[in-house]
Amino acid sequence: MLSGTVAAAQPGARGFDANTPLSDAQAQAFVQAGYTFCLRYVGRTEMKSTDLSAAEAQRILNAGLALMTVQHVLNPGWNPTQALGQEYGANAAAFTKQIGLPPGVSVWLDLECVADGTAASDVVAYCNAWYDQVAAAGYLPGLYVGYAPGLSGQQLYGKLKFKNYWAAYNVDGVSNPSPRGWQMVQSEGHGTIGGITTQAYDADVIQQDGKGGVPMWLKV
């Protein structure tokens, strides 16, 4: 198990999500640039060399960055089903546990680029099945809402079990899960940091949502 404390994320904290492994020097470079937390990826069916490892997670924490995980999404035009939600949710939890993050930490589902014409009921079934698997493992399920999530803001708020929402940089206003709203807001990366370009990371800011909620992270 990784050393650290599960704690409520601090409103106003600046962080980033990265789709590439971080070295000690790169993690330190983000800290020096003013970032205080990081989100790294886990797989849907397997863990690849570019996904988060236990060793990298410890490097991130040792650098002074808080940590959460997010799961890769399928290629654009994918079709969500309840069965996929169960499978991917179970794996998101298992991989996060395998890395060593303790229960209570936020684990995020990436919902975007759903196939045109997908029934809202299929998206709801997928998301809620994913939620159940992650919650059963003791983690806090969160939902990243990107372009074409397949649900309206009213459906995101009213039909899903999630209470933690993260807005993508390209999300449209129709998809705001009002009245709860966002606990984390993404923007495109701000220049190359530690050799990592804006193609490999995006910036994020924590905020309290409309009901006072925030994500939960692991920090030293």
Rank of each mutant, 00 (worst) to 15 (best):
D116Q: 13
A7H: 13
I193Q: 02
A200H: 10
S23D: 06
Q208D: 09
Q155C: 09
Y144Q: 02
L22S: 06
A148Q: 15
G77C: 10
I99M: 02
Y41V: 03
L156K: 04
I196Q: 00
L74K: 11
Y147R: 14
R180K: 14
K161M: 08
Q10W: 01
G153T: 03
S3H: 13
A29H: 11
P11T: 11
D116T: 11
G194Y: 03
M1K: 11
N19P: 09
A137I: 02
Q82Y: 01
M184S: 09
G173I: 03
G189V: 07
A137Y: 06
G210E: 07
I206Q: 01
H72R: 15
Q155S: 10
G64N: 04
L84E: 08
V174N: 15
L22N: 07
D209S: 07
K211N: 11
A125Q: 01
G146K: 04
G15Y: 06
E56Q: 15
Y131K: 00
V42C: 08
D51G: 08
T118W: 02
A57M: 09
W78M: 04
P11R: 11
D24V: 13
D202F: 05
G158H: 09
W166P: 05
V123K: 00
Y147C: 08
G138S: 10
A137G: 04
T5Y: 09
A135S: 13
S178Y: 08
A115G: 07
A92M: 11
K219T: 14
T45G: 03
M68G: 05
T5N: 15
S3G: 14
Q26M: 10
C113G: 02
A120D: 12
L218H: 00
S53E: 09
L160I: 06
T197Q: 00
V124Y: 06
L101N: 01
A203Y: 04
A63N: 00
W166S: 03
